[in-house]
Amino acid sequence: MNEDSIYAQLTDIFHDVFDDDLIVLTPQISAKDVDGWDSLTHIRLILTVEKVFKIKFTTSEIGKLENVGELVTLIKSRA
């Protein structure tokens, strides 16, 4: 799966989870840039990513993610 299509699907997921259609994803975007991205919403985000991409992350992987770029790298390594 190439990065463009991962970004496209992730954008849909972000719009859905944060209920904000204006979010534009770049690799640098992190929790402090998005309204409502707290530790609980982070879990919901990860659960949705797992469901959409049909992959599963480990607890430590989920804790280590710093920004969108790292999330995309992680998805790419699995999907």
């Binding site: 530790s39 879990i43 659960l47 607890t59």
Partner: peptide, 13 residues
């Protein structure tokens, strides 16, 4: 168990 550990979810989402 993973969700309980991560965020104290009482059952699977």
């Amino acid at each position: 168990t993973e969700l309980w550990n991560l965020g104290k979810f009482p059952f699977a989402d």
